[in-house]
Simulated scan of single mutants.
Amino acid sequence: MINVILVEDEEYLLREMALTTPWQDLGCTLLGEAQNGREGLELIEKIRPHLVITDIRMPGMDGLTMLREADRILGPDAPWAIILTGHSDFEYARQAMRLGVKDYLLKPIDDQKFHSLVSGIAEKVETGIQRQQTRKRQDMMKESRLSLFQEYGSPVKGDGKDEYIRLSVEYIRENFSRDISLLNTAEELGITQGYLSRLFKERTGYTFLEYLTFYRLRKALKLLQNRSLKVHEIAHQTGFADHGYFIQLFRRNMGITPGQYRNGGNQENHEH
């Protein structure tokens, strides 16, 4: 859903549009109404809507001046706009197109054309929002410690020590969702915990716990793409028995919480 405000000095038309337009069906939420450009500008600054539908001729501050001021104040965050007018001269249209205006609607308004136009803009805005969220996720990955994690690749010509590491990494891949440790991995391989600890750091560049943690977090990133899974379920599936500890580790390595990552970097009140 995109957020919309209406700015129209003719009260009967403002009420009619606000009450009879099927906003939800068009992919919109109507968040505010104003009867002149100055009130409209205050609403734009306060609400930061995605779309403004405004009359072009209003007393005091007209629609174009309002949009020009919004563009000056908000810059790239200025809203898209549709203008309503009984005037169809070219100069108004030329000025309007520089201010994020996507189309004109001449009064009296044709409902079918109006609904089609609003729906089309809502779809384009939503697509843009989704692309921004995808870019944010990608940027977060590039900047995170987790992005530097490299899984161990066994050398073509390795020695016995490399075989121990290969088997250790294989053990992590097969058992990461369980409560495993350096100790039980070493016991599985038939070597001492101290020896495996030194060898693992020497050959992979990570401690055993660092490698296990990064491996689990990488798996968690993939699972977060499945919105049917709750964050606490993902924590459990990737071997983190403590949901809170999982969120803490994720934030430490990604800079945001799992819920915020899933939401494209936006703030959330709860982690589910």
Rank of each mutant, 00 (worst) to 15 (best):
D179E: 15
L183A: 13
E123N: 07
E151H: 10
I180L: 12
P155A: 11
R135G: 00
L167W: 02
G153F: 11
G158P: 01
I172P: 01
Q193M: 11
F176R: 04
I180G: 09
L196H: 00
D139W: 13
S197L: 08
L146D: 02
Y171V: 05
V169C: 08
D162N: 12
T127I: 12
E151S: 13
N175G: 08
S144G: 09
V169G: 00
K157G: 02
R131W: 06
Q193D: 11
K201I: 07
V169Q: 02
T134K: 14
Y171I: 04
F149W: 10
Y152R: 09
L146M: 12
L189K: 06
F176G: 02
S154R: 14
L183C: 07
E123G: 06
Y171Q: 03
E163I: 13
G205Q: 10
K161R: 12
S147P: 00
L189G: 04
S154L: 14
K124I: 05
Y152D: 04
R198F: 05
T185G: 03
R166D: 03
Y164L: 15
D179N: 15
R166L: 07
M140W: 15
E163M: 11
G158N: 06
G120K: 05
T204D: 03
Q130T: 10
G194N: 11
T127F: 10
S144L: 09
T127Y: 12
E170I: 01
M140T: 10
D162C: 04
R135Y: 07
V169K: 00
K136Q: 13
L182G: 08
E202H: 06
E126T: 10
K142P: 02
S154C: 10
S147E: 13
F149G: 05
D159H: 03
R145F: 11
Q132D: 13
F200C: 02
G194I: 11
G128H: 09
S147D: 10
Q138M: 14
S168V: 03
K136S: 09
K161Q: 12
T204P: 04
T204H: 07
E202S: 11
E126W: 07
R135W: 07
Q130P: 00
I121S: 00
Q193K: 15
R137K: 15
R145K: 15
N175P: 07
R166Y: 07
S197Y: 04
A122M: 06
L146H: 02
